[in-house]
Design a binder for these strands. Structure first.
Lengths: 226, 226, 226, 226
DNA sequence: AATGAATGAGAGTTCATTCAT
DNA sequence: GATGAATGAACTCTCATTCAT
């Protein structure tokens, strides 16, 4: 829309419109800044929680890192707990997005599983704080934890159901697949704990042979002879 | 009961007893009381941590529950952290003992696995605080966590190696079994989180159909058709 | 109604109206709104102070109740204290007006006193916040308190001097009557505290027998036999 | 019971007693210090409340004046409010004691009243903070206020009932005297407010002519001619 | 004139640790 | 060895006031 044309046509109304437009233009930065500040607090909190845990993520520390005054915090969150509960869902979205991108184009169900598995570890390698944020959340931020857990499980479940419908995954009822989903999510985080965090040196990467072992386990089970 | 006969088999406490016997009689009750006090603090801490977590396990709370004075704490532990690190190994021993008893007499490797699996959940049903104690320990008491984790993994590994030596478990090298062990330990705790803690009502028990699903997964794997 | 005729008798508001009439039409609504806003703040503050006291009468609370933005407050008052000092005189006028109306038509000095006494308690029953507003003002809003106290005392004094001039009240010099006035004002508020606020149930009314006792005390004094 | 006789009879018990006595002697300084500290906090609080009011009597200020660390406060009081409620009864005892001493030896009921009246104002002259402490307590420390008010009223009432029994005060039933007591207490504090606090210069004393006016009022009432 | 986001000082309270007794 | 009073730093949260819009 050309603004010039309106000037001559309706000077008063146009003036008004222009004013509003200007005022909106002036107010938008405010709204934008508000979102920016809120996100700055979330980002700062996510980083701090990932580094030192929920307990030591004090408001002083968070606001300082976000470049805001102490009191400003309460313009964006009702309480410290309110923010802490929001941290995990905030970063959880990132992980989900990252995995979805890496999985797209997988050839079959097993490929989906492997790509998703590798993507998760790649994300963790880049965001080493996520693991701690997730783990401690169970008791330090139970609401956010439940939210993230549900989201992750639902996405995982949907993926498995698609594989099932395509006939690529047999032997389990839908109800049983719920159990399987939790088992697979569990495995990811314990393998991270054992082979990346504790034993992984500085690379932050899961050794290739562990990936292979995981895939073997997935494919063939334990092959007990009983 | 004669103490002499037990000397050769005696655990540390027995050795202590012997030592005590050689020292002055008057000091003996003191040494005993010291051990008693230390254990009282550990027991109190274990209970409190299980209920409210490491963060809220204050020294005041612990000493009060243990029936000791606040300041007495520092006669037995160097710091609050020192005690917190000791809590998980303290209670972890109990779990290990409980499982060992339940597993004894298993017919074969799969049976060992199932008995051990069921025993773990039975223990958790009776000691609902253990789960929290273990989970939060990873960051709140990392030394104790590592100790407990190593112990548990080693015991599990030893069991699997025995199965392997007996030819009851094939397809995985020893190195790979290390991965499997962590995967199985992971599964236990996520299934607890999902199907007992969150969904289990008051019983604190794992539903039978979940056990069956777990065993099926263990036996046959996921049966992907690729 | 013609406004011209009222000009000579008109209170300040009427004068304001006249002033407005002579100034530019476009600015009038602004001036009106300004007064409205200021009064809205005073009214809101009066209500809040009566309910929760001066301390908890925060600017946020007051502006919210007045339907104005937080920052707008400082267009009408220099500071929070500035407003608080204005609250008591604001509501004090109402009480004075109410009493004056009730007293009009009294037969004699004692009747004036009784009508005034009853009117005060009736007002307090309808405006239970006034008592707190007055009581706390002594230290929380000393300027407003002094203003209100002087006003009330002067009115009371003028009334007594009229009685004295009419020969209905003897035995006290003018100077002494100043003391008497304060004693009588004191009595009202302690009787409210004791027999209405603490003991009065939900009615908010002073029991009739207390009124009678007060009147007896006034008439005859304590009748000490010395 | 004589203790000597027991020494020979029960040496052990006696030894114990002696020990206890020693340990008590050692512990007494502790107990004494505790009382001292608590009183130091109360004294500091009383002084500060008298000077700047309850609102500004912060724990930091109080502990500093008492010469204790900030955190020490909570060894002696549950909360700031807990201390504030205790302040008025603490200083109220002093006033009551002071009045009782001054009143002793009064010749008759009116003399009691005058001595008590003068004593109250003398106390207030020496303790100018008491007035504020009492006045603000009604809303800032309502529990302590009620306690002090009840105590004062009961003492006053008991005194008037004695006068009544001696036949020195007639014309009021016991129930009515309750009203009278509150009226007289009220008068004291408003006269202080008007003729000492606001108008009294530095002396802090009630002018003699005000006392005389009060006594005249008390004796003869207002002598209305109706 | 009106807004409400931003500030930062200061409030009450907790608690690991020390130390005189 | 045992006690518990004492400490003071650190915490979360509130709010009068300012100021860019």
């Amino acid at each position: 829309m050309s603004r010039r044309k309106q000037i001559s046509l309706a000077p008063k109304a146009a003036a008004n419109t222009t004013l509003r437009a200007t005022s909106k233009r002036r107010k938008l930065p405010r709204a934008e800044k508000a979102i920016e500040n809120r996100n700055a607090l979330l980002r700062a909190a996510a980083q701090i929680v990932g580094e030192v845990g929920y307990q030591d993520a004090s408001i002083a520390r968070i606001t300082q890192k976000a470049g805001l005054a102490h009191g400003t915090f309460y313009l964006y969150f009702d309480s410290r707990q309110d923010l802490l509960e929001a941290v995990l869902p905030f970063v959880g979205e990132e992980l989900a997005l990252f995995i979805r991108q890496r999985v797209s184009g997988a050839k079959n169900a097993l490929d989906v599983e492997e790509k998703s598995f590798r993507a998760a570890f790649e994300y963790l390698a880049r965001n080493p704080g996520f693991y701690r944020t997730l783990n401690e959340a169970e008791f330090a931020a139970p609401v956010g934890f439940a939210k993230q857990f549900d989201n992750a499980a639902h996405r995982y479940m949907a993926s498995m159901l698609r594989s099932k419908e395509r006939g690529e995954l047999e032997g389990y009822t839908t109800k049983e697949l719920d159990v399987v989903v939790y088992m697979l999510m569990a495995i990811r985080f314990y393998l991270y704990l054992r082979f990346v965090k504790d034993d992984g040196g500085d690379s932050g990467r899961l050794p290739e042979w562990v990936v292979k072992t995981y895939m073997k386990f997935l494919r063939g089970g334990l092959n007990y002879k009983n």
